[in-house]
Design a binder for these strands. Structure first.
Lengths: 195, 195
DNA sequence: GCTGTTATGTTTACAGTGTAAATATACCCT
DNA sequence: AGGGTATATTTACACTGTAAACATAACAGC
């Protein structure tokens, strides 16, 4: 178990991911190179190969951390006795805010070309993020049918609309004119819960 | 007006964009380099500079063509007397299909890092695509209010959900297990039109 | 028709990138 | 103590985008 002990560098794996996150919101996605991460972590530019294999491996690890942060953002500011509607509000709003405040990281997280879609840790963190949306999707009245996949459909609908809105705004496709001030809650119908 | 005449190459601008599209769905986004486009068009690797300035310029032109193709895909197969509901069905289904069949191009089109968001032709084609969604968004009964921005909100909701669903499926975030077979029409409520 | 100007391509050069191989060093276990 | 392994460096290389200098073809004006 050499993961936490003080080794040559300490634990370079964590340092490289953190360096990548720093670069992302200081210089943007175009500056996120393998060598730049290595330099910032204080090692040679081939050191990351031992931990991540190649560039896609490092990018996947950074993206996985991004999902972790996104999940946290979706759950911040919630009181102890938050209702499901409160959690839904926080989740959708947090998702959009995260994309707006971390455009480079957000683009990386959903870039199949740069990341390994089958990375275990990436899939795990993405699923954890998806779980939050499942929680707030259960029991919506909009779904009149009692089909067994109703909950799944509501979950996918939530992720689709919040992700679409987040990316369209973060990528600047929706900023022109008067639509700039619209929030996702203005656009997405405010369905009630059955219970 | 040397745009169409037979010049050194003919019209290299069009040839380079076409070369980029060919590379995209033959080798994917990672193979879409400036030099590869130039080689395929039969010119030296610095020739594109005259027409597009730099890599981002060429990428923006290819992305603009992508929006043009997307708009066409959203409108194919429609009969002369298609109702608005028919057009809506075709638009949403076409959008999702386009993303699934052109994953590299789709990623490029929504990659602010690789394209110039303020490119005139890119904005024009993206707006033309958005216009299709505005058409099918008017008069939906889900919007009970008569607020002046109701149409705009419906339009944004349509683009958000169809784009989110398309990207989540195209990027592989929604392919696990039983949700693979779900279409967007299973997920998105089938609102009726007022008229 | 000839010449000057501009648009279009080429050649050459260069800094930066990811990756692989060979090598070195520090830690761990017996 | 000593061998084995994980970790990091050095070196090298092919590839990328960009810039500058140069070459060539179209066009404009006389």
């Amino acid at each position: 178990m050499t993961d936490q002990g003080t080794y040559h560098h300490g634990n370079l794996k964590e340092a490289l991911v953190q360096a990548g996150l720093d670069i992302l919101h200081q210089q943007g996605l175009s500056a996120l190179t393998l060598r730049a991460c290595a330099v910032r972590a204080g090692v040679s530019h081939t050191a990351p190969k031992n931990h991540f294999g190649n560039l896609a491996g490092l990018m996947s690890a950074i993206a996985a951390r991004g999902y972790q942060k996104l999940t946290e953002t979706m759950q911040t500011g919630l009181p102890q006795d938050a209702t499901r509607a409160d959690r839904r509000h926080a989740a959708l709003g947090g998702y959009v805010d995260f994309a707006a405040q971390n455009p480079g990281l957000f683009e990386l997280m959903f870039s199949p070309q740069r990341t390994n879609g089958d990375s275990p840790e990436l899939m795990e963190q993405a699923n954890r993020c998806f779980d939050v949306l499942r929680d707030v999707s259960e029991g919506l009245v909009w779904d009149k049918s009692d089909a067994p996949d109703a909950a799944l459909r509501a979950q996918i609908m939530h992720w689709s609309i919040v992700h679409g809105f987040a990316q369209l705004t973060a990528s600047g496709k929706l900023t022109k004119g008067e639509m700039k001030h619209l929030q996702i809650f203005d656009v997405f119908p405010q369905f009630d819960y059955k219970a």
